[in-house]
Simulated assay, not measured.
Amino acid sequence: MTPAAGSSAAHAHTLLDQSMRRWVGKPSVAFTLPAFIAAAVGNGLRSAGALPDTTSVMRTLLETEGTRLARMFGRGHTPDDQVTITTPRLAAVAIVGLLQAYSRHPGAPDGISDQLRHHGRQVQDLVCDGAELYALLEAGWTTPIPAATGTHRQGGAASGARGGVNPQRRAGQPRVRPRHRDNPP
């Protein structure tokens, strides 16, 4: 989920905090997704829970829901099976954000991107209980994705590079391999 143009991450955090207070005592939301999307969402939630700026409450929620979805839908279903997901509303907001990111990935085929947007907007309609929250989530479908800053690992098998780019390594310096039991000094 990308904050709307003109809004800030602090505003988004405040808005989500207010929404969580409204959601106390409300039931979880239920929706269906194709099994292959549910498995990808489960893995994405677990990864999002491991981000360094994630609060402990959000980390626990994302890791718990992500593990549950990945285990439940990662095996035993054909990709076209429709599976029902029942999850807390805050996790559903995170799922919308993941579906937004997945649908906008440059490597995603158009047919898959359309399917991700369709399902993401359905979840968005279920979870939004106010105009401000809806506007915040809606902006995530259209707000430009910021360019990489060089602080994230780049390269990898998809780009043909061997390993990641280390912006702190100067040109001409040897690559330093971490010590490991299989990599003695």
Results as ranks from 00 to 15, higher is better:
R179K: 14
T142Y: 00
V123L: 02
A4P: 12
Y134S: 11
A157D: 11
P144Y: 00
Q122F: 12
S103F: 00
G111I: 09
V176L: 11
D80R: 08
R153M: 07
I85M: 10
Q173C: 08
Q82G: 04
M72E: 12
A94F: 00
P34F: 12
V165H: 07
A94N: 08
T67L: 08
A38F: 06
T14K: 13
T149M: 02
P34I: 07
G76D: 02
I95G: 01
G25N: 04
S8H: 13
L62I: 00
D81M: 04
A30K: 09
A39K: 05
R75E: 12
L116W: 10
S28C: 13
G74H: 08
P106N: 01
R181I: 09
T78F: 02
E138C: 04
A158C: 00
L15S: 05
A92P: 00
A139V: 12
G44Y: 01
T14I: 05
A5K: 15
L90G: 10
L126A: 01
V57E: 15
D80S: 10
Q100T: 07
R68W: 11
R68K: 09
A40N: 06
I37Y: 09
C128L: 01
P146C: 02
L16F: 05
V24P: 05
H152Q: 15
G150Y: 00
F36I: 08
R59D: 11
P185N: 10
V96Y: 00
G164A: 15
T78M: 07
A48P: 11
P167V: 08
A157M: 14
K26Q: 14
P146I: 00
R153Q: 12
P88R: 05
P184S: 02
V83E: 04
R21W: 04
A4V: 09
H11C: 02
S19E: 15
W141M: 03
H11F: 12
Q168E: 14
R181C: 03
L62V: 00
R153C: 13
G130P: 06
L61R: 07
T2W: 06
L69R: 03
P27N: 07
T54M: 06
F73N: 02
G76N: 04
S47H: 13
T67V: 06
P79M: 08
A148F: 04
R181H: 13
A147P: 06
R169W: 04
T87C: 08
P184T: 03
R71T: 13
A10D: 12
E138I: 05
E65R: 12
A135K: 11
V41Y: 07
T86M: 11
Q100W: 01
F36S: 03
L90W: 08
A12V: 14
A5H: 14
I95W: 03
P178Q: 09
G107P: 06
R75C: 04
P146D: 03
Q115W: 07
V96H: 03
L51A: 14
L99F: 01
D110Y: 09
P167C: 05
G150K: 00
R169L: 11
A30F: 06
T149Y: 02
T64E: 13
T14S: 14
T32M: 10
R179Y: 15
A94P: 00
H152S: 14
